[in-house]
Design a protein around this nucleic acid. Structure first.
Lengths: 134, 134
DNA sequence: ATTGACCTTTACGTTAACGTAAGGTACGTT
DNA sequence: AACGTACCTTACGTTAACGTAAAGGTCAAT
């Protein structure tokens, strides 16, 4: 058994992207579909990678950065020569993600404060409306 | 007193961007410096806005989206006509930010698991090295 | 009065990440 | 045999977000 395979349109539908996008990712080495004649056959691994790419993209990383990070994921630790260096690099990525997360958290909290202000203003208006009817 | 003002290079140094970038943001309406002759004078408000823009950019929003979100911040609730609509829009932004945050959290946790695997492998190698010396 | 620092405008150039059009293949169906 | 569907390659086009070069204004210091 060679595992589940997916056509390009299947993945396009699942992740809501165009074929062009996926082909572009292939040309960047982000996915590596097999071929049956001309047609691309995407493996489960390609599907996982695609999901990672799209997540990274939505977080504002460019494709080159995403490629680097993904390559960390499926690397065989027993085969890595510069283990300390690689580990340091990965820890750096973690820190940069944590920084982004705290930025997001700040933004969320500011928007929530803003939300409360508007809600208060809204309640005030409704009260004034009902008072006007008396 | 008209408050603290900043030159373009001051802000460039503080936020590590080029003058071109700030001028570009002005042309998009993201900052609105006053003028003294030709020169731009940035207010504290511009500085805050600039910080928000850069934060948004690092989170993968484009300048148009950032403009919309920033405009929410400094809007006067007592003057807003479509209060419910605006509120709904803001809540939507909050939800999209929360989604991004959970994506980041996922990514962080996956990278941490990866880190632990590499650390284990590293310990294993060191042990084998010392054994080899016996 | 000229140099240097700081700032300006105008306008063409660049890069990433695809969009899109044109034309072709391969295969099952009508 | 013609058609539809799904896929392919090649290659030019587009958009956002600036980069960069050219030419010039203003003011203080030498």
């Amino acid at each position: 058994m060679s595992g589940q395979v997916y056509s390009i349109t299947q993945l396009c539908q699942e992740f809501d992207v165009t074929p062009r996008t996926i082909r572009h990712y292939e040309s960047c080495g982000l996915v590596q579909p097999a071929r049956e004649g001309q047609r691309r056959l995407f493996s489960e691994r390609d599907r996982v990678r695609l999901r990672l790419v799209l997540r990274g993209r939505s977080l504002g990383f460019n494709l080159a950065e995403i490629a680097e990070m993904i390559d960390l994921y499926d690397l065989d630790p027993t085969q890595v020569a510069q283990l300390e260096r690689t580990l340091a690099y990965g820890r750096d990525k973690i820190r940069s993600l944590e920084r982004k997360r705290s930025e997001i958290t700040e933004a969320i909290e500011e928007l929530r404060a803003w939300e409360r202000r508007l809600e208060a203003q809204l309640r005030l208006r409704k009260r004034q409306q009902t008072e006007g009817k008396r």
